[in-house]
Structures are given as C-alpha cells and as structure tokens.
Nucleic acid binder design. Structure first.
Lengths: 212, 212
DNA sequence: GTGTGTGAACGACTTCACAGCC
DNA sequence: GGCTGTGAAGTCGTTCACACAC
C-alpha cells in the first residue's frame, strides 16, 4: 500500500502533496468523498492524472463514488512520511529562514525546528522565534548529536557548498536550499533547490517570447 | 537567433538561467571560453544537455574550442529577456516579500520594484526598503497605470485567487506566487508557483522511501 | 585531436479509453 | 449511470553517437 514497486516520479510526489492540502480542507469542511474530477479541478490537473498518481500506492477509491476524503488524507500523510516528526535546522538567520519558520503549515506537518544558525557574531545569541541563534561552527556537531534530518539552507551561494559538505559529513539526510547555486552531494542525501532568480527569469522569458 | 522555431521546454529555460549565472562569474574572472563539459559540471548537468539547450537558439560555439564566455552571456541575457527592465510589484509586505526585495540579483537583472502592497492597516504607510507600503485596494489601478509586468504574490492562500483575478483584470502579465494554492488564470498570463511546504514534503517522502 | 551541432534512439511522464465495480 | 483502475498509446524531454569544423 505504501510500497510502490516502481520508482515514483518527482512530479507525482508534488501532486500528492497538493492533493493532501485540498483533501485536508475538504475533510475539515466535513465532505465525505471526493472524485478524481473534483480533486483535479482544485489542483489544476486532470482526473486521469489524479487516478494514476494514487494508483501507484493502492486502490483507495470506490467505483461510482470517488475517494473517501478522510481515509485518503491519512493515506497520503503516511505515504509522504508526514505522520512522524522531522528534526529541522535553519542555516542562515535571515529573512527567508524566518519566513519559513513563521509559516504555520511548517509545524503542523511535523517539521520541528531544533536550531537556527548564523556565522554573523551580531546575530549569534539573539532570540529568534522560540529559539536562539547559534554559532554556525557548532552546526556539524549538533547535526550529529541531535540526529537532524533536514537542513534549510538560506545563506549566500558562495558559502553554500562548504556548509553542505560539513553537514553531509555530520550525517544530514536532506537539504532544502535557497542558495542560487547547484549543490553537489552524495546520492544518499536528498536535495531540493528553490531559486527565486531562476523563477523570475522564467517569467521574463515567458513575457519576452509570449507571442512565439 | 533568439527566434526558436519550436516551443522551448520549461526545464530548458531553467537551465539557461543557470548557465547564465555561471557564465557571468567566469566572465568576471576573465575566462574567455568555456566548453559544454565545463558548464555541465558547474551546473550539475551533462555536456550533451548543454549543447542541446543552446542549439535551440543558435550556434554559439566553435568546434574544438567551446563557447565564447562573454558573447554567450549576452546572448543568454537577450534570450531570457533580461536586457530590459521589468516593472514588479510585491503583494504582501511580509518576510518573503522583503527577502526578495533584499536580494541583490533582483535589481541587477532588471527587476524594478515599483510598489509594495498590503491590506493590513498597521503596515500601510510604513517605509519598506526604498518604498512605502501601499493599500492593497489601490493595486489594480496602479497595475494598469504603471504597466506593471510582474506581481510577486506573498499573501495567504485564501486571499490569493481573489487578488490574482483583480490583477489579471488590471492587465498583469506574469505572477510569481508563494501562496500554497493553485491559481487559475487565462492563458496569456504566465504563472510560477513556489511552494515551500511542497518542497519539504518532497524531502519527507524521499527520507521515508529512501531505501526503495 | 578537441569539442560542437544534431538527427535518431531511448526513456519517462501524461493522456486515452475502456473494462470492471459500485 | 457514475467513477475508478489500468494497460496501451502518445507526447515530450534527455541521452547517444557521430559527422563536421577548428
């Protein structure tokens, strides 16, 4: 059920995440079932896509009826690994990091911020949400000792690879980077990069070539 | 040369943006030429991919030598539409918006922030970078009058579609959204969505199923 | 020899279409 | 009748491999 035989495409996982968000909303509103058609419209995809995505993990629907909202919600949480807590550190005590930490869905989904780090002496020791900004030099040891799963990287591109290497050596397993650079890590470490400049340039391209 | 016959894949445009970033760095360091192999290593892709991507727009390289760094940099800026200024508004005077506005590459690449908007009376009128936070109700008129090209949307998911509809009616042409929801717009409006929760859940999935 | 440019082969994701069950 | 589950078909992007230019 949560054991797909084939490797699942990243695009599928992204859509599962989106289905979950809307299903949680429907569940909160007391809706009992949802069809692939309804989910597709909410998420901006197609009914066939919804059914295919879900079918990789099991047969959750009832023919003629649709999918049971509450039950499917729980299945998706399970599939995405959201029914457990993940230990997260935020590296770089700037605006991006604090925007993330502020985000409600963050804690709700089991992402626990166990530390915030910066190398700027002016920031070290300052209160930051529930925590206090710690010296970056303590990061590797902390990652190892507290079994940190995920690091959110919000530091300049030039410093990024160096910090990544230290965290990888310390046992980090996943990284969400906002640094506008490509990161090199061993295969067992998962990396996602969000590059705002790249997104904007994509829009610039679209505006420039929208006629074509 | 900047007139591709076929539609260009989004993934290709994203890589062009990345090539550009590294080429600008090489150019600043005085390097004259770069091979597809070198660019591929820097960007974490393959030489064949680099050559294919560039070949959609012309023959910029010299066989046996590689690509002229400075010239290719300019070609890519042209292709991506970065040799002109874009008028940008930031909607939502929170952490995300300010993180973006703070980002140096933003202005460098010709993205000019012409206004920041919020509906919170406590924020309206406050200084915000070089600007002052304006009342969201003035947004549609401002978009029309100042021919705003791009809106960066950093407001709660529940308010997003409504604001988008207003901006579309007012003539916006592109939207970069940080709201964790799917947006519906007419075909002539370009939209990119950055969903941090989705990225984190992708990592959660990877950690949960890393053995598989 | 070195490295580009590109059709052709390959692989991956999406869409189709219909059998099967409620 | 309505809607799911899924093999098959289609589409799109990536990789290969080699002719060609320097």
């Amino acid at each position: 059920m949560t054991l797909p035989t084939k490797r699942i495409a990243e695009s599928t996982v992204r859509r599962l995440s989106m289905y979950l968000r809307y299903l949680e909303g429907l569940d909160a509103m007391g809706q009992r079932t949802a069809s692939s058609d309804e989910l597709a419209q909410l998420c901006g995809t197609t009914p066939a896509q919804v059914r295919k995505d879900l079918s990789f993990f099991g047969s959750f629907g009832k023919r003629g009826l649709g999918y049971p909202v509450h039950e499917l919600t729980e299945h998706l949480q399970e599939i995405l690994g959201l029914r457990q807590a993940w230990q997260v550190v935020i590296v770089g005590a700037g605006k991006i990091g604090s925007a993330l930490a502020e985000y409600r869905g963050f804690k709700q989904r089991g992402f626990q911020v166990v530390g915030v780090y910066d190398k700027n002496p002016d920031k070290i020791g300052r209160p930051w949400g529930d925590a206090v900004v710690r010296d970056m030099s303590t990061l590797p040891d902390d990652v190892t000792e507290h079994h940190v799963d995920i690091a959110v990287l919000a530091i300049p591109a030039d410093d990024a690879q160096d910090v990544v290497d230290q965290m990888v050596a310390a046992g980090i397993r996943a990284i969400l980077s906002f640094a506008p650079t490509s990161l090199h890590v061993p295969a067992h470490v998962a990396v996602k990069t969000v590059n705002m400049a790249m997104e904007l340039e994509g829009l610039s391209y679209a505006l420039t070539n929208r006629g074509a």
